[in-house]
Design a protein around this nucleic acid. Structure first.
Lengths: 228, 228, 228, 228
DNA sequence: CATGAATGAGTATTCATTCAT
DNA sequence: TATGAATGAATACTCATTCAT
């Protein structure tokens, strides 16, 4: 724990009454940490968690292996920091993209598009997520999309409930919709990687939305479809 | 080559003029192989590929580690045999379930249901598939569902094309439909496991089909929905 | 020990009053043993003692690995039997070649020639001898040439002593001559193999004899040559 | 590459503006490497290549096994480094001993004596050479004595050719002489070890030279001796 | 702080040998 | 007697982690 470095941005006040002697250059430490995460992410994605050699990371960074341990107390911690780092970048990218859309349906579209766009730009994160699940099964599970941990005030659920109320969406249990959307987005990303395709994910946004919004059956169809 | 086991059951007649020495007991070999796959699958799913120790498998089976190597030349081979074994069982279960349905839409429903049902019964296979991707990225990629390698004569695509022709489905590119279905099914399975939920997958079949068949928007909606 | 097979040729008398039941086919056993030695020699020479796999020997022979253990109680024993087998064949070949020469100097020449000729025909034996020394340093040492264990009645020493007596050879300590001859012959064989040359050894016989018999200095030279 | 140790001794000036962190102690590394070679040579000679356990070497040195791998990337490499190390020490000892002799015949004598003297002092090297041949048959073959790779400018051949020209040596093909000398020296060394004798080799120098220089036959003998 | 030398637990794989059939 | 299935001891090598400098 002694080894973990706190990222602390000195506020204006702190800057004024600085301690005597050479001040801790926290921003340097923060920059280092960021650099390490970046290189480690690449390495973990390329080699997998178990096969990744921290020496490789150190070499690429031009530092000694011991240095890594000053910033992250263990390989495991470094790896998990990489995943979390990627995850939070993803989250903020999605969130910011949603802001620009007013129309609720367009918000959904924007979110999916942003999601795909992020993974197009950062395919390593898919690898990290797979590796995370493969090695650390028991880590507290994350949902990445259309699902928040606290069920009640999930903004996506609220958005969809509202659309149903205004009769823009069919009266379907809200959870069913968020689940399908979330699973479909995930499935698309993983399928894309599992099958080795490297097409743009973003390009598939419209296709997905077309199906989910409109269904695949003709409108007049009133038969009960499902049921074995 | 020395490790490959020949399957040859001596008939009664052959038994009469047997060769000198202990005869090969091929059924024993086949049984052993099956037993090993079963236990190894459990172990790999529980510990992950890298952490799994073949000694554990041997101990559980009550045999020596060397014995495993008589049947599978390496840890890697044993693992991949486990995955392939699971995969083929999945495939045959899905295929047989589809046979019982006449109506095309019900065939789709049956397939999805069988798929989910299999993973409900054999959650280890999800683990193995993840492990396979995590450790052996470069293995020839498998599609498990709604996608065959040869595009032309894919029966699922034919089935859907036919439904469009008879105006039971909207005129949407066939590939778009199979992709969405496939990705949705996958995503559901993985999400279920990634998030640690252990609800029945099979129970979600109807929900998924409701959304995919009917869409989530009200019918009268003619607005262009998507587009950033 | 129970496993070692005695080679026993039934004499005429034994043949007459044979035991009841199927007689032991000792010649079969002897033949097997010979076959095994032959194949094992090749394998040991090709792979080295440690790397040689008895399975390889068994496969080549078309028998099971366990069968080898009926003829030789261990890998070590099998190997040493191979060396001894080769050694005795060498010895008898040399001995028989010497018989044909009358003149003492020609006997020496014949022996060397036979020695070289044998190793030309059976280079594996060089390998075995090296392997024997490498793995079983402590085995009772063998001399192969121009040196018998019992110093007194060594026929080669007697032959040379006689040549000195009749003033055909210079008056040099007999041991010096046998040592030089023996070491030279050995050195030639090993050098040939250590340097990877595969020229005929036999062809070098005359060159060697020329030097040893006549020396390399001009006759008139009376200077003391050696001494540091 | 990570394991290779750079030999760089910081000069006094460089020491003043030293880089941050623990400086590389190159002389330590060189010393370690030398120590390892020394102990490993003893171990390999005592146990043979295959039976030698690097743990034994590490224990003797009081270091961990992993440390050995910092200096030599594999058991094989360590072994071959031992052989090469011994070989080069031999070579330089022979070369320096030759320098002190003026007379060509005395140069030959000095070389042989130095050769023998070295192996008297370092019998392990004989073992290593045998082990090298037994385990790494295909390594580029070395000649140790009286034979250089490039035939033309071999100084020994030149020396002998000169002696023939000045009629100090008989007119015999030069190669015949170098071969006989080389093989005799080798054979003496190996015989000595193969037969388990541990007499001084050096003491045999004069005997050998007497035979090779003067031959064993009486001078007046003009008969053709050899021929089958 | 940074370094890099040292550590040593951990593990897949081989193959001589045994023995029930 | 021959077989071949089973055994399990033996071992080189890796790399996360520590810590003296």
């Amino acid at each position: 724990m002694r080894n973990s470095i706190q990222v602390k941005n000195p506020t204006a006040v702190e800057t004024l009454k600085r301690a005597p002697g050479r001040p801790k250059d926290d921003s340097l430490a923060a920059r280092r940490q960021e650099e390490i995460l970046e290189v480690a992410t690449k390495t973990f994605a390329a080699d997998g968690y178990q096969n990744a050699d921290l020496q490789e990371v150190a070499d690429e960074l031009g530092v000694a292996k011991g240095t890594l341990y000053r910033y992250f107390p263990s390989k495991r911690d470094l790896f998990l920091a990489c995943v979390d780092h990627g995850r939070s970048r993803l989250q903020s990218q999605v969130e910011s993209s949603v802001m620009h859309a007013e129309d609720p349906l367009k918000r959904i579209a924007a979110a999916i598009r942003a999601f795909f766009s992020f993974f197009d730009a950062h395919p390593e994160l898919v690898e990290l997520i797979i590796q995370e699940r493969a090695e650390f099964r028991d880590r507290n599970k994350h949902t990445y999309f259309f699902q928040c941990d606290k069920d009640e005030d999930d903004p996506w659920e609220q958005l969809i409930a509202e659309q149903i109320r205004v009769r823009r969406m069919r009266s379907v249990p809200v959870k069913r919709i968020t689940d399908v959307l979330s699973n479909l987005v995930y499935g698309t990303i993983f399928s894309n990687y599992f099958t080795g395709r490297h097409e743009s994910l973003e390009a598939q946004t419209d296709d997905i939305l077309d199906v989910v919004f409109n269904g695949i059956l003709m409108d007049q169809n009133g038969d009960p479809i499902n049921g074995s």
